[in-house]
Design a protein around this nucleic acid. Structure first.
Length: 585
RNA sequence: GGGCGUGUAGCACAGCUGGAUAAUGCACCGGCCUCCUAAGCCGGAGAUCGCGGGUUCGAAUCCUGCCGCGCCCGCCA
């Protein structure tokens, strides 16, 4: 609890000095207590034992006796060599109700460019791709909650082989040919008959089949190769035809993402850096670097082994035919990004680790900084890796439909009096929130296996659990407003000196909000904030159990103020996690 | 073969800038709706923290060796 630490650290330092210790050590040793019943802060006294020639137990006891009192300190105890400090709930309540959950840390306003999703626009969004978008969007929202200015950017790969395949197929194959080729596969879900991503992907899949298995595969490969080559040389007609091919697909993907509340501030096309000459001049500049070398056929690479890269150290940035590679364009893109913002964060799959390192090292070689990267592991199905080709994918559109249907069943069961429209609204919010939460809730670097029963769990530890706590707080607000009638003035209150356990726990949890958010922003680990919001909901439920805001026809002003602070904090936190804060459910 | 990551209760997952009794959810056992929404609350049971060594007053956490799993090691994107 940074708030308490800031208030008591000088007292602890003074106490340690008074018994002959080095006060400067306190700063690094004084830490949040591990268990809530130990207190809020703890000072393990073991590190001081040697210098003071005393046992940690007696040091803790001496410190306990020496410490000056402070209004922020509720209790202080020496236990087993630890000095445990518990916050004074009255002081904490006063602080929280006057300045809010702000813990007093400095928050210099930063401007951050976060690039995420950036999926190839060649087919519908599937759950495997979703981790990037959900983590990225959550990171964007968390930064905004912290007060940073954020640009959320989608880098559109509009000139690679994948787009070329799509463009070629849409041009060369008729609907009948496509359907004939795909016969025997799962037919497309009729629900998405008008969604272009689900439609156009059929052409892409048919083309992939032809490339692999047909007799004309070499000619097809040649045709596609020519398109790729033309696009890399900035051929405007080809780039236009690419755009015509991918844009409807991208739009379809964005519709799906929009349903999850994921939006972007800007789309930047890869081809821009080819057509505007940035890539060409970049390659010139790279060629002047001392670590740049030539291959036999004229291709060029940097030898990054000299910069500490292990394993394969040659990083090719120019092909033998003089054209650029994806990574080259990525470097040009990053140079441009540095002109847009002074802080860059990329959300990338673990398969991009090597390339991110190559790009990062190259940027440093050019005198730029390397961007920060949040890596995540892939989502797989219980049956194994997700693959469009083998047909074991879960499309996000299907998942969201299923989530909504299951949520609707729960609502119908629990609230039989709700009308159809209300049920639909709640079900949509619960479904999408549950899906998002299921994914942000686990640490990104951990492998993730998608399971329907987990994604659609509506119990404790899920988004609906959080949503439910929030609706309770909303319900209290409504009841209080009704109680106050036309006089909407919030009731006066004094802070009780004795507080039920649930209330104290809620106050302590609220006090941790900024500590957690600060860490999450610093380390790019959104799941920690998800865990915090779960804790906060749990704490609110405890408060709800112990403290009746309206009792005997009277509104308890103090309880109401705490309930409102919790409601607002929950609400903002939910927004930051992409959980829809419903008022009733 | 090399690099990076990961391994914690039946399942899932937190903790990993070293600190006390390893947190949480699911599943399991028991209790709570004349009282602000029971999608909730309270209690119980369940863990050789992958295995072996080392550093330390103290190791799930740091170092090291082994084992399992994932990803990467294209003049692809």
């Amino acid at each position: 609890m940074e708030l308490l630490k800031a208030n008591v650290i000088t007292l602890v330092e003074a106490a340690l000095e008074a018994i002959g210790g080095d006060g400067k050590l306190v700063k690094s040793v004084l830490q949040p207590a591990r268990e809530a019943d130990q207190g809020d802060l703890t000072l393990p006294c073991f590190p001081f034992a040697k210098a003071l020639r005393k046992s940690p137990l007696s040091i803790a006891e001496e410190l306990c006796a020496t410490m000056e009192p402070h209004e922020s300190i509720g209790e202080i105890h020496a236990v087993n060599g630890y000095l445990n400090i518990r916050v004074n709930p009255v002081w904490l309540a006063k602080h929280l109700l006057s300045v809010g959950v702000d813990n007093g840390m400095e928050k210099p306003k930063r401007s951050v460019l976060i690039e995420h999703t950036s999926a190839n626009p060649n087919g519908p969004f599937h759950v495997g791709r979703a981790r990037n978008a959900i983590l990225g969007d959550t990171l964007v929202r968390l930064h905004r909650l912290w007060g940073n200015e954020v640009m959320a950017e989608y880098y559109v790969d509009d000139m690679g082989k994948q787009v070329a395949v799509l463009a070629w197929a849409l041009n060369a194959l008729s609907r009948e040919e496509v359907e004939a080729l795909l016969e025997g596969r799962d037919p497309p879900n009729p629900l998405w008959a008008t969604k272009p991503d689900h439609q156009h992907v059929r052409w892409y899949q048919a083309a992939q089949l032809l490339r692999k298995e047909s007799e004309q595969s070499t000619e097809i490969e040649k045709a596609i190769g020519a398109l790729v080559h033309a696009s890399e040389n900035g051929d405007e007609a080809v780039l236009k035809s690419f755009e015509a091919a991918y844009q409807p697909v991208l739009d379809g993907m964005l519709t799906t993402l929009g349903r999850l509340g994921i939006t972007y501030d800007r789309f930047t096309k890869e081809s821009v850096f080819v057509t505007n000459g940035d890539v060409a001049s970049l390659m010139e500049e790279l060629g002047t670097l001392p670590i740049s070398k030539h291959a036999e056929n004229g291709a060029q690479f940097l030898d990054l082994g000299e910069r500490g890269l292990k394993g394969k150290t040659e990083f090719f940035y120019r092909r033998g035919d003089g054209s650029s590679l994806y990574a080259t364009r990525d470097i040009a893109y990053h140079r441009w990004k540095w002109t847009q913002s002074n802080e860059l964060i990329n959300v990338l799959g673990e398969d991009h680790k090597l390339q991110a390192q190559q790009v990062g090292l190259t940027l440093e070689e050019l005198g730029e900084r390397r961007p920060e990267v949040m890596f995540y592991s892939f989502i797989k199905l219980p049956e194994g890796k997700m693959s469009t080709r083998r047909g074991n994918v879960v499309f996000m559109d299907d998942l969201l439909e299923e989530a909504k249907a299951q949520a609707a069943a729960v609502v119908n069961e629990r609230r039989p009096d709700y009308d159809e429209e209300t049920v639909a609204t709640i079900a949509e919010a619960v479904g999408t929130s549950a899906v998002r939460f299921n994914i942000v809730n686990v640490s990104p670097e951990k492998g993730f296996t998608f399971r329907w029963e987990d994604a659609l769990s509506f119990e404790a530890g899920s988004a609906p659990f959080v949503m439910y706590s929030h609706t309770r707080a909303c319900s209290i607000l409504r009841n209080v407003q009704q109680h106050l009638g036309t006089n909407q003035q919030a009731p006066e209150y004094t802070i009780n000196t004795t507080m039920p356990d649930g209330l104290v726990q809620l106050l302590r949890t609220l006090a941790l909000h900024d500590d957690c958010l600060e860490k999450v922003i610093r380390e790019h680990r959104p799941h920690l904030f998800a865990e915090y919001i779960l804790q906060l909901s749990n704490a609110y439920n405890g408060f709800y159990r112990d403290c009746h805001v309206i009792e005997g026809g009277e509104v308890n002003g103090f309880y109401f103020a705490v309930s409102e602070l919790a409601r607002q904090t929950l609400n903002r936190g939910m927004e930051a996690l992409g959980i829809e804060p419903l008022e009733t459910m």
